[in-house]
Design a protein around this nucleic acid. Structure first.
Length: 581
DNA sequence: GCCGTTTTCGGCCCGACTGTTTTCAGTCG
């Protein structure tokens, strides 16, 4: 399963689940063009199920479990089988022939949806963004049914953004901006409460837009301020309770205003996820209630709404942390009181993956240690690259021994924090590690990782990683999947096998908090925990400021249902050292 | 197309905003 794609020296697995989900989603797009409301929804739901499946869809199929998946019935199960067998879906190809349009591109244009795409294609033959631009500029669109001059102008304007759209942004890049917006809006005296909702609050690894909620006595004034902020590039819509702007850098921001007694239900609703909202509303209906962003109602009477807690309680649920709200089992856990007590940033006692000037970092050992001390840590591990990674100016055995002595000196200088001696080994194509074991025995902690540019033979990686995990000197497998967000997918590794081995040997799986890594991913973390693996939440810092990325590692771990007891660097120093043996 | 402590048939989450409409469709979240 999984077709192999060669790119440079790397072999990537095209993930079947994502592919199947994308095809089902595209079918939904086409169905939506024809206004097939509920069939559209059915395909979307099935696509979502497959997308979030914790195991390969092929496996489910082999076990005969396709039709047991939520949202998958006879018809869609058959289509999934066809996709797995042939790599494509005849049904979709027929639809594509009927409407040969660049759906993905056209949908990027704000305000253009499936119905408009159909209209544009049938009336004007618009197939892609270039066609759309041509027809809009020549004034043909304004004469279409349901269109007008304003629609045409809007399309032209939004086309510019669509053309340079970079898609979703990284959580780590967006967070500072979101917090700045929150602060600006919160600084108005009329604003009683302001909060960032949406996928940022759920800490998803990539973000499509920013959702802001505010409670205020003067909505008019707040909206005025919002659409006129200096960051604003354009106003998409504006109303008394909701406005949408586009920032100068292209990102969309929504502001919605509520009354205090609605705030909790509004926050639940606009935090999402969409899938969770659907479930919550169904639960409300099942209890003879109605749930919307204004509260939980029996008839006209609002039973709950001011806080999230009371909204959940009214549905018989305990409070669900935003990071868990993906309709991935958290409702069931909330019903039975089995939600995890998620790890928090304040639980973290140290950082176990840090680089310095000795390899490709920017700062000295002492500078990193002082920065770590400021964060209240008890320890940090210096883990510079070993020499097998020439691009990073890695250390050989001699240099590493020298660094060990330097760390001793730094430790003598410091009080209240301990610098651990470590290294980040590079795993070679033949599976060997790039530092002699005699030297490894001098270290407190050993990380091993795959790095780009190593020409592994197809199909060998899983075994090599398993061997690495079994190596008695290796404590932590760093950024295990090797993915880089928006850049490259994970390496062709069967992580479940790796987790199984790691749980056996006690080797720790890293959650790397670099904004474009977040590796392991939330889904991977949940799987690793099921196998009984321990985690280390690290920053892979190359600069003192990078130590702040611990938050991203924690967010990701929380999305993976991790508790403090699953994470080794929540341990105090002495216990950590025992764990590392 | 899916699904069932109302149901194997008849439901399927729901509201704001815009632009085009004389009462609503499309889009978005």
């Amino acid at each position: 399963m999984g077709e192999e794609v060669f790119r440079g020296n790397h072999i990537y697995m095209v993930m079947e689940n994502k592919k199947v989900a994308a095809i089902l989603d595209r079918v939904a797009d086409y169905l939506e063009m024809d206004g097939a409301d509920f069939r559209t929804r059915a395909y979307r739901r099935a696509a979502h199920t497959v997308d979030f499946l914790p195991q390969p869809i092929e496996e489910v199929r082999k076990e005969g479990g396709l039709e047991k998946l939520p949202g998958v019935g006879k018809a869609i199960a058959l289509k999934i089988k066809e996709i797995l067998d042939t790599g494509s879906l005849q049904y979709l190809e027929d639809l594509e022939k009927q409407y040969p349009v660049d759906f993905e591109g056209l949908l990027l244009v704000e305000g253009v949806g499936p119905k408009t795409i159909k209209l544009l294609y049938q009336e004007l033959g618009v197939k892609n963004l270039a066609d759309l631009e041509k027809e809009a500029k020549s004034g043909h669109i304004q004469h279409l049914r349901g269109m007008g001059i304003k629609s045409e102008k809007r399309i032209l304007k939004n086309l510019e953004f669509a053309k340079k759209s970079t898609g979703r942004r990284l959580l780590g890049d967006i967070m500072p901006l979101a917090l700045e917006l929150k602060e600006k809006i919160g600084s108005l005296p009329e604003v009683e409460i302001v909060e960032i909702a949406g996928s940022i609050r759920r800490k998803k690894e990539t973000i499509g837009d920013i959702d802001v909620l505010a409670v205020t006595s003067d909505p008019q004034k707040v909206m005025d301020y919002f659409v006129n902020m200096d960051l604003v590039g354009g106003i998409i819509s504006r109303g008394p309770s909701r406005s949408t702007i586009r920032l100068k850098d292209g990102l969309e921001v929504d502001l919605r205003v509520f009354r205090k007694k609605e705030y909790g239900s509004a926050l639940v609703y606009f935090t999402g996820s969409w899938e969770l909202n659907v479930e919550l509303r169904k639960m409300a209906i099942g209890r003879g209630l109605k749930l919307n962003e204004y509260g939980i109602f029996r008839g006209e009477e609002q039973l709950a709404g001011e806080t999230e807690e009371e909204v959940f309680r009214a549905l018989g649920l305990s409070y669900i942390e935003p990071e868990l709200r993906e309709n991935q089992g958290e409702i069931e856990a909330a019903l039975t009181g089995e939600l995890p007590k998620l790890v928090e940033t304040s639980d973290i006692k140290g950082d176990l993956h840090i680089h310095t000037q000795w390899s490709d970092g920017r700062s000295s050992i002492l500078e990193m240690a002082l920065a770590a001390q400021k964060l209240g840590y008890q320890y940090l591990a210096i883990t510079d690259h070993a020499h097998g990674l020439p691009v990073a100016g890695g250390l050989d055995e001699t240099a590493l021994m020298e660094q060990i002595r330097e760390i001793d000196r730094v430790n003598d200088e410091l009080e209240g924090i301990r610098v651990l001696k470590g290294v980040e080994l590079n795993i070679r194509a033949d599976g060997t590690l790039d530092i002699d074991t005699v030297v490894l025995e001098e270290l407190d902690i050993v990380l091993a990782a795959i790095h780009s540019g190593v020409p592994f033979l197809p199909g060998t990686l899983t075994k090599i990683i398993q061997d690495t995990v079994e190596n008695e000197h290796v404590d932590i497998l760093a950024h295990p999947s090797g993915r880089k967000l928006k850049k490259r997918p994970a390496y062709d590794i069967d992580l479940e096998k790796v987790f199984e081995t790691a749980a056996d040997t006690g080797t720790i799986m890293e959650v790397d908090g670099q904004p474009n890594r977040l590796d392991l991913s939330d889904e991977n973390i949940r799987t690793a925990l099921k196998y009984g693996c321990k985690l280390s939440l690290d920053t892979d810092a190359h600069h003192p400021q990078d130590l702040q990325h611990m938050e991203l590692a924690v967010f990701t771990a929380r999305r993976g249902w991790a508790e403090a007891r699953d994470v080794v660097n929540t341990l105090p120093l002495n216990k950590l050292l025992k764990t590392l043996k």
